[in-house]
Nucleic acid binder design. Structure first.
Lengths: 132, 132
DNA sequence: CTACACCCTCTAGCAACTAGAGGGTCAAGC
DNA sequence: GCTTGACCCTCTAGTTGCTAGAGGGTGTAG
């Protein structure tokens, strides 16, 4: 399987696959006579795993740990749970931050009377002076 | 006013102030005899503006535009409104994305039975094989 | 035999800083 | 007068997760 085929099989860009190899996330595959990368089923599985984890928002470092853990089939999955839970906590925190931000932005934008910049409430919120 | 003073007055790091100068967001101040940056009230206002806009999540490019607009006091504030509204739309989109992500993560984590990695539902979700 | 799609390596770029190296300046305390 | 420590300076490289480009080689269809 050539890199382009692996790329379309996993909806990943060719450059991204090479990048994953360069950071040791994906093992270097065999090479053809013409030095083309030649991937097998293992690589496909591994890259699929990476893709799904990335789609769930895990960082590449987290993915790296999840991959390592997934290889120790007998071990407790506590560590897996921990990584996922702390990621979830982070996602929740971001949602909270963005929700607060949204309210603030809505308030600011809602106060705009569509006059001149000199009277603009939005600019007013940002600048430490002037009135609307 | 030295850079450290401006930094603590605006809760900005010294390096960040120098960075803003390097990308022409903040005008270069006068220099003292010993080549120290010497800031005035204008710089304080400008940096405060930048900080508030950044706190509202505006990109540096958006901040640059907002700053330019805020100087044209007579102009219509339509452009300001547009920048703010499109930022708000972006924030909303991010909240939606993260909320969907949160549900997915909660579902995945909730299915974990705290056994071994081989039985782990979390790993199972990521890997295209095995059972819990 | 010549297009053209594909592959290769290596490097630089994005946002928005942050951290470090390697140096100069200035006021206080001994 | 001299050292200590907190500042300041410039310049460069690192962070995350790719993406895009230069400058080349390969393989196949017409």
């Amino acid at each position: 399987m050539k890199i382009g085929e692996l790329a379309s099989a996993t909806a990943t860009k060719v450059e991204t696959i090479r990048y994953y190899e360069s950071i040791d996330l994906l093992a270097p595959p065999a090479r053809s006579a013409s030095n083309y990368r030649d991937y097998g089923g293992k690589h496909l599985n591994r890259l699929s795993f990476i893709r799904r984890a990335r789609d769930l928002g895990f960082s590449l470092e987290a993915v790296r740990e999840l991959l390592a853990l997934s290889d120790n089939i007998g071990q407790s999955c506590e560590a897996v749970d921990l990584i996922a839970s702390s990621h979830l906590a982070e996602v929740k925190r971001k949602i909270d931050d963005l929700t607060a931000l949204r309210s603030e932005l809505e308030r600011v934008i809602g106060s705009c009377r569509h006059g001149t910049v000199g009277e603009c409430k939005i600019i007013d919120t940002l600048a430490p002076r002037s009135a609307c």
